[in-house]
């Protein structure tokens, strides 16, 4: 199941990354080699095995539903690349095609 350059471009789009043609040419065989190696798992019959999402399986970790403060607006904006007094600033979203 080899992945083509076009498919790699499609994945890049999903991941919000851009690659030059040269990078895609390096990348595609590397990704194929790694994915090919991953196919190894198909040697195993896992029909009756439950997936494991966490190595230490815990159930229902609750905390009390108490109101507490986290960070201030000023702190939240501290690392923003573009901001005004109360908001993060980004390019216009509505009406953008």
């Amino acid at each position: 199941m080899a992945v083509t350059k076009d498919e790699v471009e499609k994945i890049a789009k999903l991941a919000k990354l851009k690659f030059s043609d040269k990078e895609l040419e390096d990348f595609t065989p590397q990704i194929n080699e790694i994915l090919g190696y991953m196919e190894k798992l198909n040697e195993l019959d896992t029909e009756k095995v439950e997936p494991l999402s966490h190595p230490v399986e815990q159930k229902n970790v609750f905390r009390e539903d108490k109101l507490k403060s986290s960070i201030t607006t000023e702190e939240a904006l501290k690392n923003a690349p573009s901001k005004d007094e109360h908001h993060f600033k980004v390019p216009k979203v509505i009406g953008d095609k």
Binding site: I11, M38, T46, V49, E50, L52
Partner: peptide, 24 residues
């Protein structure tokens, strides 16, 4: 890129879910 691929529609079961089972 690899992670996006193994989670993408059509490949999720073949890679991600399969790997979670092998993890067990």
């Amino acid at each position: 890129m690899l992670g996006t691929y193994v989670l993408s529609s059509g490949y999720y079961d073949a890679y991600y879910r399969k790997a979670q089972k092998v993890r067990r």
